[in-house]
Design a protein around this nucleic acid. Structure first.
Lengths: 232, 232
DNA sequence: CCGGCCAATTGACAATTATCAAGCGCCTTG
DNA sequence: CAAGGCGCTTGATAATTGTCAATTGGCCGG
């Protein structure tokens, strides 16, 4: 652990209000490691031995069944993942692997649960974080069940547009094959969906996206805060 | 509120360990009402004014977008719903309506949050409940993204089989049209999926289901605890 | 600088799923 | 008991999505 890392962790909502002594206990027990890309950090079904924090790089959460695989989420710095399994002392429901070279901090689940038991501010912060995660997954489920693949892509692009502060040109921060999986479709289907969005003024070249007619795209995509707003 | 209701509520994991005084505060603020079937209790987007508890009957959680509607979950007694929105003081992401005649207890969100702030045992119980909800939605997402419609139906029936304590004959506890929506398919498609499962020894007549060759069905359905186990 | 690799794209085709329309059967109600 | 309504089923067809194969094009290592 580098000395400059500690305030950054402390700054996370999850740890911000907890007792200083408890925080130090957690930090003392932590492991820090830098992983190359495409390294498996955890495997679904395994026991949740660590709460992970992505410090740099990015991590993909994915799941498998019967030889198939689907991407569930991408975790970017600085945030934690698989908090629920850690707290519940349950097996991971998702696997995780680095998408790029990443620095990961690992807090032993045992220590996290110990602090959770005695630190009330931390316990409440866990609630907020879990509620956020829960609502986020509910929104994803609505996205998948209520929208066609082209509609999902259109709304994904609009979300990128907002996350970049309203830019009409931006870069995709994710490989297309992974985006396809995240949105519940095949890479081929994503390609065709992107092509279909040309009719609404969307131009995609490689990773760069340009929205030439925002109103037209929104008219088609019909974004809803109850699905697409990441904060609400 | 009937006097005999109170111990039943107290028995819920969510309220079991909380301070008696705080519990009484919550109960005093509560409303109880019996609703006929098909009554809308809450509408997505509305502000979360109440935490609801289903006491008898059943409640369907559903979501709409762009004129389409999908069933998200069925809540059966005795359990709460939309805890995350209440705690976060955020808009509901789902609507809720009674499926049958139901007794509903409503705790004002304001009171719930007040008790949440001062009762540490309650705060921790909320964590457990939210972690459970979160993991449950993750499993549903995996079910939808990784399985075909026939596979989803097969695994649904196996889950019913387990929930009834291993019975090979049981009744569907849900209308087929609603089951179809829950599983992310049309009623027509569900009909055909059920027919396709005859090949694996499943006989469905109306609401009654008989599994004649469990091994064969499992071989096809390939149930996984990381998707189908409601407790894990 | 070249060669090879791999992601992305494209086309042709297949499978899955949805839609539309009609009919059946059960349940309720007058 | 008859009539009507509604949910379920079935068939025909259409739309969507996935699969397979081939090609393109950018990037990296030799």
């Amino acid at each position: 652990m580098r000395p400059e890392d500690i305030p950054a962790i402390r700054g996370l909502d999850l740890f911000h209000d907890m007792d200083e002594g408890n925080f130090e206990d957690l930090i003392r027990a932590a492991y820090v490691q830098t992983f190359p890309p495409q390294v498996d950090l955890i495997t679904e079904g395994d026991h949740a031995d660590f709460l992970h924090i992505v410090f740099s790089g990015s991590v993909e959460l994915y799941a498998r069944w019967n030889g198939r695989e689907t991407s569930m989420a991408t975790v970017r710095p600085i945030s934690t993942f698989i908090l629920a399994a850690t707290i519940k002392d349950a097996p991971y429901l998702m696997s995780a692997r680095t998408s790029e070279k990443s620095r990961i901090i690992m807090l032993p689940s045992l220590d996290v649960r110990t602090v959770f038991e005695k630190d009330n501010a931390f316990a409440r912060a866990v609630v907020t974080e879990l509620a956020q995660c829960y609502r986020s997954v509910v929104k994803k489920t609505k996205d998948i069940k209520l929208r066609s693949s082209v509609e999902r892509v259109a709304n994904y692009l609009l979300r990128c547009h907002h996350q970049t502060g309203g830019a009409l040109e931006f870069e995709l921060q994710i490989e297309k094959r992974r985006l396809a999986s995240l949105l519940g479709m095949t890479p081929e289907n994503l390609s065709r969906a992107i092509k279909a969005l040309r009719a609404y003024g969307v131009k995609v070249d490689g990773t760069s996206v340009r929205i030439s007619d925002l109103a037209d795209l929104e008219k088609f995509a019909k974004p809803s805060p109850l699905i697409d707003d990441s904060s609400a």
